[in-house]
Each structure stands twice: as structure tokens, then as C-alpha cells.
Design a protein around this nucleic acid. Structure first.
Lengths: 343, 343
DNA sequence: ATGAAAGCGCTAACAT
DNA sequence: ATGTTAGCGCTTTCAT
């Protein structure tokens, strides 16, 4: 065993060294005003000298407030989510909180376990990007008084705050844009069609197609592993004779572009193409990706702010359902003429 | 205030309801064997019924073990780091731990504050991707007995474990590969040249150039904001008449490709090009990116494993310095003929 | 196998 | 302005 040299100093050690009572030391620690300057200085000097670090665990136990929020996401690899996390952490830090971020891998069973460990650690609030759109899988695992904000996926009939984007509307806009280019056999591709976001985006797509009197063509798989180049070739390209594609999420786009590439097809060039979610190099890809860009920073800030408001009782009892706009970033892959100089 | 309806049940509540002593309930909770089956079942039934959740905070206070590790990274947006985090969390979870991951933004002052908050929360170990390569900024803020593993940046003269990659060697290989294509005015570009990783990579690059009797050309800036297209044009392209480029890190590559694009130049096509760190679409980009790929999953697993070994006293007292190989993924941007079918 | 008492390091409530 | 006494929810002696 690594012998921890000695126990770290406690507030009692500080008090003894500074010849004040424990409570006075505590007051100094918490910046209380009613302490004589002289004693306060003495206490602070001792703290500095012996390297005192307050034990946040002990404090939390007493105050019933851990100063920790939890955040559960589906997939850490998605840069969209990374950006959300970053903003959440900024807000958390500004409130003196830290965030424990874990991943559910999109699986409700893992999500449940993650919730359990977070609850045991007595988090003060939770930001959850649900693995499913079902309410009971979440509420069952949660103390009913834990402030909760859901993100991305909307959980219907839920009694907690949510932050989502204009899924339907943005899918509508994207489809319309492709229709405007004259494409008619536009195929929507994606994963996990039963998810709220998928359903909404598909609905938006369908609306646009119907309005234009074209037949909607939706190709979805249950798991991303099924997004092989063979599948794209057979189901999308040939099966639907696609003349344009709308990709409903990040992971689909990733596999789609790789799959096409393996087939010797250039996404966006040979097949016009709009995707939900941007990529780090989406603006440099050839052709540049036209995407529906989720306002990830805003999503992070809004959801965290909502959570802290709720934790501080600053909101109406009624849950808030914030919907943020996701805008179409028109570049080239949709068929628009880009401004790329040479090639 | 949101009135938390009622205090969550404690082990004492469980014990009372199950008509056993507090200690017996505790034994059941911790899976001790010396409890009569009948009582154990009763206790478990009560726990289930009243929705008891052990308070990890209280347990931690007593056991002096928080079951939390900290992880501080420079930049959450870098997909390489995301992948490391994911693996660290997997290892942590397998040990019954959670990880609190925070970002230093590459700034030592923020790093220091983050260390402080983590120490106050009594983390049992820390995985740190240092913002700088200086030892004292780290050790000053840290209890000297806290198990620590550094990642990515090596801190010289340090007495803790580290996990790094073959920076010098990989830079050497990458440069050699470009030289093999016949380029001689190869320019190494990057940020923060004083960092360990930068220095090592630059050294590797210089070695290769010298060995081939070509003049090394290094263009670095102190902050990524200075990586403008004007800078690339003036300093790299024209200033050095570069006929090939070696990008020393992810953020540089990102700005480089965008900058070139703004100049109407295709990275990899017009300017042959190898980069440290891969991109999500690096294999689909035209031309496909030739990269030095850091074994991020392995880095995550190794560093976490090292940390837990250290925490459990399973290592020799001497600090370990693990060096993992980063391999060259040869695609097209270096000038190699790709296998892309059409274009 | 079981329980009573002490205590982890801090803050809350009530003194003074 | 300062100190005293409890006690947060658990685990750890040390009895029995």
C-alpha cells in the first residue's frame, strides 16, 4: 500500500494552531464578516502555512448540497455534444459547481446505472440527454425532487424542463432546400427511428415532401453498425434511386460519407446531400458540407442555466420547454455553387 | 425555494423499518457475509420498498476514499482527447469510480484552480494533461501523496507516472516520408513551441531534415488565434516557399486547412501535408489526410490503469514512464497515390 | 452473528 | 464577536 504519509490537516488543526475555536475557523473559511480582523488573519495564515484544504465532502454532508451536477450524454465522440458539455461546465464553474459527465452509449440500461451512481453521490441536479424518449425509465431511477433538465431528446408527458432544437422545422427547411434544387427522390437516412429527434426530423422531411407532392423515402436502421457501404448502395442509392440525401444525424453522416467513399462516390458531388450536425472539417470538405447546425453552445448554456435556476427555485413551478433554432448552413454539398476558388 | 419534499431515507430508517441495528443494515449494504439470511432479506426488502440510496458522501467521509478520480485536459473539443476520456471513464467505471473531467484551456492558472477544486473534493487520483511542462506549477497545488498520472505532456524531473507517445520518432517518420516524396522545403507548423510535445516533434522533424541535409523550417505561433490565412500565406507558403507541410497538432491542422481554403489552396493537393492527430472525416477528405495517429484509446486505458495500480499500491515506488507508439497513417495528402476510385 | 458507541470533518443552532 | 453542542449518514472499533 502507498502509505499516505499523514492525514491532511483539518479545520480543527487550523483552529488549534491559530488558537481560536473551531467555529471561528469555520467562519473565516466561509468568509463570514463577524470575525475580528486580527483573528481572521491569524487563521488564514495558519491555513496557508499548513496547507489546509477544506474537505468538500464533509461540508456537503452537512449542508446536503454536494455542489456537483451530473450530466449524462449518449456519445462523447460527437463534437456537437462535446461543445454542449464545455458550456455546461462553464456555467457550472461560475456557480462553484463541478460536473460529472458520463456516457450512456445510448443504452437505457447503462443510463439507469449512471443515474444511480450519480444519485448516490448526491448530485444537486442532472442534465440528461436521454437514451430513449420514454418517461418511466428515467423517473423510476430518479428521486422525484431532483432538479432535472433533459436535452436533445424530448420526453413526452414529462414534468421536467427540457431544451431541444427545432428538429421538425429544420428538417423541413433542409428538405425544401433540396427540393428547390430540383431533386425529387430525396432519401432521408438515419438511425434509431423511434427516438424523438429522429421522429421529428422524419416528420419535417415528410411534410416537405408531401407538400411538394413527392413520395417520402425514409431509410433507417436500428444500429449504426448496420450503416455499411453495402446498405447504402443497396437500400439508398439503388433501392430508392436517390438523387439527393438528407442525413438525420452525425453518426449517420460519418458512415454515409465513408460508405460512399468506399463505393467510389463523392457525397455532395455525385449525390447532393444535407446533414444534421456539422463536422470539424465540414467547411473544408470537398464539396463543403451543407448542414443543419445545432446551436450547441447555446444548448449547453441554456440547459445549465435552466438547471441552476430550478435548483435555486427561480422558476415557475411549471416545467419549461425551451426550443432553440437550428439553422441551415448552406455550403456546397446540397448542390449550391460554392465560392471555392480552384479545385 | 423548491421545497425538497422530505429528506431521503437513511440507513437508520432502513434499520428501524427492518427492525435490525444500524450496523446490521450497514453489513447488508456492504455485502458482508456474517448476517443471517433472514435478516439480510428483510433489510434488502425495506431498502427496495422505501427507495433507499446509500449516501456516498457520508461513506467517503468515513472511509477517506471518495471513489472519484479527476481528469484535467486542455481542450475538450479535440476528438483525440475525447477518445482518451472515454476510455478513462470505462476503466474508472470498472473500478466503481467516476471521473470528474474538467478543462484547463491550456492555461496553467486555470489548471491550478481546477486542481484545487478537485483536491477539495478529495479525489483519490488525478490524470492530468498538463497545460505546461513545468513541474512546480503542478506539484505546488497538489498534496504530495495524491496519485498522479500525467498524459501527453511530459513533465521533466517529475516523480509521478506519465504516459506519452513517440513524439520525436513519429515526427521523424512523418518528415522522412515527405522527404521520400522528394520535397525539401518542408515546413513544420504548430502552436506553443515551448510545450514538451511541440519541442519533441520539432526535434524529430529537425533530425530528419538535417540527416537529409536540408534546412529545417519551423513556423510556430504562441496562440492558435494567430493561425490566420494571412499568416500561412505570408510566413509559410511564401515566406518559406514551402513545398510540403508538417502540422504539429490538431488545432494547427484545423486552422491550416481552413486558412488554405480561404486562399484557394487545397491542403494535400496543392501542398503536400502530414498532420499530427486524425480528424473524424480525415479519411474522406479530398485528398485523404495522411496523419500521425495517436493511440488515444490505449492512452486512456494505460493512464487510467496506471493510476489505479498506483492507488492500489500495485506498482514499484519508482514512477513509470510509459511511451506509446503513434503510427503514421499513410493516405493521400502526403503525396501518395490514393485508391479513391473517381473524383 | 449482532449491536452500542465513537467519530469522519465540517456546519447549524443556539448559546454567550 | 465568539464558543458550545449537536449532528449530517455513514463505517469502524470493540464489545457481546
Amino acid at each position: 500500500m502507498t502509505a499516505r504519509t499523514r492525514k491532511p490537516p483539518t479545520l480543527e488543526d487550523v483552529a488549534r494552531e491559530a488558537r481560536v475555536s473551531l467555529k471561528t475557523a469555520s467562519r473565516v473559511l466561509n468568509g463570514a464578516i463577524n470575525v475580528r480582523q486580527e483573528k481572521a488573519d491569524r487563521v488564514r495564515a495558519v491555513m496557508e502555512r499548513i496547507g489546509y484544504r477544506p474537505n468538500e465532502l464533509a461540508r456537503s454532508l452537512m449542508t446536503r448540497k454536494s455542489s456537483v451536477i451530473g450530466m449524462i450524454v449518449a456519445n462523447l465522440a460527437n463534437p456537437f455534444i462535446t461543445s454542449v458539455i464545455h458550456e455546461v461546465q462553464e456555467v457550472a464553474r461560475s456557480h462553484g459547481y463541478v460536473a460529472i459527465v458520463t456516457s450512456s452509449k445510448g443504452r437505457p440500461d447503462i443510463e439507469r446505472m449512471e443515474i444511480e451512481t450519480l444519485v448516490r453521490r448526491r448530485i444537486d441536479g442532472l442534465i440528461l440527454a436521454p437514451a430513449e424518449s420514454r418517461r418511466d425509465t428515467i423517473t423510476d431511477a430518479l428521486p422525484n425532487d431532483l432538479p432535472l433538465v433533459t436535452l436533445d431528446q424530448l420526453v413526452r408527458g414529462a414534468s421536467f424542463d427540457s431544451v431541444t432544437i427545432t428538429n421538425r422545422r429544420s428538417a423541413c427547411d433542409a428538405t425544401q432546400h433540396l427540393l428547390g434544387h430540383g431533386y425529387r427522390r430525396i432519401v432521408a437516412i438515419g438511425t434509431r427511428p423511434h427516438l424523438y429527434t429522429s421522429k421529428e426530423r422524419i416528420t419535417g422531411y415528410r411534410e416537405s415532401m408531401r407538400r411538394a407532392s413527392f413520395e417520402p423515402r425514409v431509410c433507417c436502421v436500428d444500429h449504426e453498425d448496420l450503416l455499411t457501404s453495402e446498405w447504402f448502395d443497396k437500400e439508398v442509392i439503388r433501392g430508392q434511386s436517390a438523387d439527393a440525401v438528407l442525413s438525420l444525424n452525425w453518426v449517420t453522416t460519418l458512415h454515409f460519407l465513408r460508405g460512399l467513399d468506399a463505393l467510389g462516390i463523392r457525397g455532395g458531388r455525385n449525390i447532393p446531400f444535407i446533414a444534421f450536425d456539422d463536422f470539424d472539417l465540414g467547411d473544408v470538405l470537398s464539396p463543403r458540407l451543407t448542414v443543419v447546425r445545432q446551436p450547441s453552445e447555446l444548448l449547453g448554456r441554456e440547459s445549465a442555466q435552466l438547471l441552476f435556476d430550478r435548483m435555486n427555485g427561480k422558476r415557475r413551478p411549471k416545467p419549461d420547454a425551451v426550443v432553440l433554432p437550428a439553422g441551415l448552413i448552406i455550403r456546397e454539398s446540397c448542390g449550391c455553387k460554392g465560392s471555392r476558388s480552384s479545385s
